[in-house]
Each structure stands twice: as C-alpha cells, then as structure tokens.
Simulated scan of single mutants.
Amino acid sequence: MYDVGNIAIIGSGSWATAIAKIVVEHTHHIGWFFRHDDKIEDFRRLEHNPAYLTSVHFDLNEVTLSSDINRLIQDYDTLIFVTPSPYLKSLLKKTKAKLRDKFIVTAIKGIVPEENLVCTEYLRKIHGVPDENLAVIGGPSHAEEVAMERLTYLTVGCTDTEKAQAMTQALASHYVKTKVSPDVIGIEYASVLKNVYAIAAGICSGLNYGDNFQAVLMSNAMQEMERLLNAINPIQRSMTDSVYLGDQLVTGYSNFSRNRTFGTMIGKGYSVKSAQMEMEMIAEGYYGTKCMKEINRHLHVDMPILDAVYNILYERISPQIEIKLLTDSFR
C-alpha cells in the first residue's frame, strides 16, 4: 500500500485552512506554507489562521509554519497546493527544489492564467511531474462547512489508483467521506466551469430571475460542461456524480459561494472592478471565464453560458441584454 508520508499544505486561504484541519486530524503533523512572515507570527500567537476560518484552532506542536517554499518541498513527501490559480505560476518560479519526485495534490479550482492550463497540466508540462505523481481533490466542499464539520464528500482523482486511495485515507473522517476517480483532467475542468456557471447563476439572481429559471440554467450548464469534458477527455463518466453535478449545485446555489456572490453583484449593477474590491476573497471564476473562452477557441464546443459570462465580464455587455439573449437559447 502506498504511503503518502508527511504532508505539507501550500496556501493559506479558507480552503487551505479547511484541508489543513482535515489532514492534521489524521497525521498530527503538517507543514504549512504562508507567504508572509507576519501572518505566521499572528498564527503562532492566536493558534489559528489570522485571516480565514478563525474558529478553527490548531495545536502548534502539530504544525510547522514556513514562508520558505523550497524548505517545505525538500522536507515533505506529499504537497497539497491550495493557492489561488493566478498565483501558482509566480510561486513555483521561486522553487529550486525538484517537484517531479513528490506526490503533488492540487485542490485548486482554477486555471493558470496566460498558460491556459489546469494545474496538473501545468505541473506536468512545465515542471516535469509525471502523471502518476499528480492528483486532484474535487467535490462539493465549502470551506466554511468543513470548519463546522458538516458532512462533506470529496473525490481524489489520480491515474495511480493506489496513490489516490492512500490520499483518501488521509482525508476521510466522521464528517468527510471520500472516493477515488481516474478522471483527473475532467475533475479539474469541471471545477473551473462550475465557478463560471456560479457567476452566471449570481448574475441571474441579481437580475431577479427566479428559482424556476435557475433550475433551467443549472441543467443547461451541466449539458455544456459535459460537451466540454467529452471534447477534452472523452472517457466514460457519469455527470451526476457529486464531483461534477454536486460541486456545480453547491457553487451555483450556496450563500457561501464567492463566485455566486460576485455574479450577484454584477447582476445588481456593480462594475467588475468594484465587485472585486468589495469582496475579500478571489472569485476564481472571473479568471476561469477568460481562460476557458480562450481554450474553447481551439475546441469549438457550443458553450452559450460561458460566452454570455465572458461578454458581461470582459466585453462589458449589459447583463440584462446578455442574459435575455441566453434565455432565448434555452428550451
């Protein structure tokens, strides 16, 4: 049986904190990367992340905090990346320690901007990490609910089933249920698209479209997602699995969803810039929309919801006009 060894969390946001909570309950030791030393000092003083999920307290004897990314890569066997996707490229440019021999798990639900690659693709193509050493964590999983130990279902995707199974054992608990999947790329692209569709749901909410239409929007979103996944990775998959449909529903409907919140602000008349300034956390779907639009220019998949969100966010088309055109295309 594969052993994931000692685990380091790379990232310090809300989802990184939730994963740190899950993992340390099993392993009783994690490394944890914070970019800024002052945040580490605050953490040590308060015994919790000073900026996110502050109700989750940690035993400092079980946590090695560091702003030295190379030290953590060198000292730990498994690295779970949970940084916002726009920051991944610049962070990895600072690495001198080799990544290819580490087991790397990405819990990043976004695309690396400019490269237009999901994170495992980026790690494989740019940093030479082989497929069998790459995994992804997906599924409907708001960090706030993990902090409250509400029942959560996670899927670990990896081409190496034994490694995926080992990772699920490091995550499973009385409130976290886990399973494995070979569909690494599919899970990653689904996690990007669900953020885009959550922005669409938020825009429609801000424009006072009701629940009846939201249900039609979600069903059309799933059809759109399936077309894209089949174009990118045409394998047998069930779109009703929680890692696809479940993640889409929770992101599209939940008040915890930052992407839905961002979209709602746009629907109510905020500019993109003013909405971003008011939100405390990054809405990954904003960046994902542009990247997916560029990717689809080569794939030519029919994606009217993606196109509508792109036109609103980047072409400054009126949300009222764009969503009305979108509604006319639905049946």
Rank of each mutant, 00 (worst) to 15 (best):
E315H: 14
H57I: 08
S329L: 11
A200I: 04
K268W: 06
Q214I: 14
V301G: 01
A18Q: 06
K93Y: 02
E294S: 09
N230F: 03
L91S: 02
H142F: 11
I321F: 11
Y122K: 15
D328C: 05
Y52D: 04
L171R: 01
V23M: 14
E25D: 13
N116Y: 11
Y2P: 15
D3A: 14
A201P: 05
Y209I: 09
A200C: 09
E41A: 13
T54D: 01
V176S: 07
Y286F: 15
V216F: 07
K102A: 12
T54S: 08
S254C: 10
I312Y: 00
Y310A: 07
N61T: 15
T251G: 09
Q236R: 02
L72Y: 01
S242P: 00
N61W: 05
K290Q: 11
V118T: 14
T64I: 04
I321D: 00
D211G: 11
F43P: 05
A18V: 12
Y122F: 15
I80Y: 02
D101I: 03
H174Y: 13
H298L: 06
S271Y: 13
K163D: 14
K268T: 05
E121P: 03
V136W: 07
Q248Y: 09
R331H: 10
L249Q: 07
N220G: 05
K293A: 11
I7M: 13
Q169L: 15
V129T: 09
I199R: 08
T240R: 06
T289N: 00
N133A: 15
H36Q: 13
T327M: 08
L171A: 09
N116W: 06
K268G: 03
A231D: 00
F33D: 04
N311Q: 12
M218L: 14
L65T: 06
Q214P: 11
H26R: 15
F330W: 02
E62W: 05
Q248D: 05
S85K: 01
L228Y: 03
N61A: 15
G267N: 01
A215H: 10
E47R: 12
R45H: 15
D3C: 11
V272Q: 13
S318N: 08
M292H: 00
N233V: 03
A198L: 06
Y286R: 04
T261R: 07
A308V: 09
S238E: 08
D37Q: 11
I321K: 04
G246P: 07
V192Q: 08
R71V: 13
G13N: 08
F330G: 00
T240E: 08
D247T: 02
G186W: 04
I69H: 03
L193C: 01
A190R: 06
L79K: 02
Y76V: 10
K102S: 12
C119D: 03
K89N: 10
K21C: 13
A198N: 10
P304I: 13
L306T: 00
G186S: 02
A147W: 14
E188A: 02
A18H: 10
V272W: 08
P130W: 08
